[in-house]
Write a protein that binds this DNA or RNA. Structure first.
Lengths: 221, 221
DNA sequence: ATAATAGTGTCTATGAGACAGTATAGC
DNA sequence: GCTATACTGTCTCATAGACACTATTAT
C-alpha cells in the first residue's frame, strides 16, 4: 500500500522510561505514583508524549530531565508497545527506553509536576505486576531481561558505577544484575582487559585495600 | 509530566517491513519501486500506516499480505525510527519489523496496488544507500546486523529453509547470512542437536546422497 | 595474631576452529 | 576406476567455571 498523508484517525505516541540503578544492593527502577485516573495511586513509569518536532531520543531525554536531574546518561531504545487497549483512555503507542545510572547521580526530583517519584526494587515489582499501571510491568520485565543479556557481552555495567571504582564494586554490580554470585578470580580475568588502574587505592577499611580502576577507553580486546 | 489526552499535533505512525530471504545464494530483501514523489522511482521498503484499531503486529502482517501472499512467517520487531525529517512530507514515526521467509514461499505479488515489487540483493543495496528512499537503507543495515548476530545464538536460520532440508543446505544459509564459509565438521557438531532425521535422503545427484532433516521441536540443549 | 577482604595460580571441562580422513552416489 | 559431494575423527587453542592459595590492611 502506498503511503499517503490522508488524514485518518491517528494513534498518539509516547515515550516511557525505564530508569535503572542500584541501591542497597538491589536493582531498582524509577517510578511515579499516579495522581489521576486511570490507575490512580498506582505506580507507573515516567513518560511523555512525543512532540511533533522532537525526535524520540529528544522526547526521552526530556522525560528524564522532567522527573530527575539526569543528564549525560546511557540510554537505549528497547521496544515499542502497540496493544490496542494498553491505555484505557485512547490509542497510545509507546516507545520504551532504558536508561542506566550510577546510584549517586539519581535525585528523584519531586517533580515540578505533581506526583511522588521514587526508586523501587525491580524484583518486588515484578512479583506483583498487576499492581503496576498500564503495561509498565511488562516493560520493566523486558528491560531487566535486556540488561541481563547485555551485561554478559557488552560493557554496559560500567554505566552503573561511577567514573572510578574497585573491581569488587564492579563485581557486585554484575552480581546484582545477574542475580547470582560470581567467582572473583574468573570475574577479574574477564574484566581486567576493559579497565585501567588509576594508581589510587581505597583507604581506611579494616582489611586489604583495593585498587581503583577506571574504564579503559582503549580498544575492546 | 503527567500524560493527558489533550489534542496536540500528533506524529503519524507507520510500520515498515524488512522481508529477508535467500535467492541465488544471496541474501535479498523485498522492495517496492515508488511510483510517486517523494523518492519517485526509487526503491523503498513496503510499509503501511498503523490503523487506530490494529496493533503494530497486525499492521505489520497486513503490510506483508498486501505486497506478497505471505502468512505464518517469522516476524520480529526491530527498531523505531523517529528522526524529524525522515519523511519529507510530514512527521512520521516508523516501527520496523523484520520478516524471514524461505525463498520458495515468496511470490512478490505485483500488488493490487501500483508499483513493482521485487527481491534485491542486500549487499548491493547497502553499497548505495543514498539511492534508497527515506531512511530505509539504514533500516536494512540494522536488520542485516540483527540477523547476523542472532543467527549465532538462536535457531533463526531455520526460518529461511523449508520444513525439510539437508545439513549442507542449512549450512549454505548460515554462510550466506554470515558472509563467510564455515567448516562443515564444526557446523554439523553445532547444529546436530537442533535437528532430527526424517529418514529420507536426497536422490538423483551424482554424488553421495545426504540425509534430510527437520527442525527438532524438542528441548534446546 | 586475627578478622576481613583483595587479589593470584592453576586444574578441568567445554566449545570453536582447523584440517585430514572416510563414505557413497552417478558416471 | 573417477569425480563430486556427504559425513566423521581428532588435534589444538581459547575460554568459563571451580577452587585453593597468598597478600595487606585495621584492630
Amino acid at each position: 500500500m502506498e503511503k499517503e498523508t490522508t488524514i485518518y484517525e491517528k494513534p498518539s505516541v509516547t515515550v516511557d522510561l525505564i530508569v535503572l540503578t542500584i541501591e542497597d544492593e538491589k536493582l531498582k527502577v524509577l517510578m511515579v505514583k499516579r495522581s489521576q485516573e486511570p490507575f490512580k495511586n498506582q505506580l507507573a513509569l515516567p513518560g511523555v508524549f512525543v512532540g511533533i518536532s522532537e525526535t524520540l531520543e529528544e522526547a526521552a531525554k526530556r522525560g528524564l530531565s522532567e522527573e530527575t536531574k539526569l543528564e549525560n546518561i546511557y540510554m537505549e531504545q528497547l521496544y515499542t508497545w502497540g496493544a490496542i487497549n494498553r491505555d484505557p483512555r485512547s490509542r497510545i503507542i509507546s516507545v520504551s527506553y532504558m536508561a542506566l545510572v550510577p546510584k549517586d547521580k539519581v535525585c528523584p526530583q519531586v517533580g515540578k509536576r505533581v506526583s511522588e517519584v521514587g526508586l523501587f526494587p525491580v524484583e518486588e515489582l515484578l512479583s506483583k505486576k498487576e499492581e503496576i499501571a498500564f503495561d509498565h510491568g511488562e516493560m520493566i520485565a523486558y528491560a531487566v531481561e535486556r540488561i541481563r543479556n547485555k551485561v554478559e557481552y557488552t560493557p554496559i555495567a560500567f554505566e552503573m558505577v561511577g567514573e572510578e571504582f574497585t573491581l569488587p564494586q564492579l563485581q557486585k554490580v554484575y552480581e546484582i544484575i545477574l542475580g547470582k554470585p560470581l567467582y572473583k578470580a574468573n570475574f577479574r580475568k574477564k574484566i581486567i582487559h576493559q579497565v585501567e588502574e588509576t594508581g589510587a587505592m581505597t583507604e581506611g577499611e579494616s582489611h586489604r585495600p583495593s585498587k581503583i580502576y577506571r574504564k579503559a577507553e582503549t580498544k575492546r580486546l
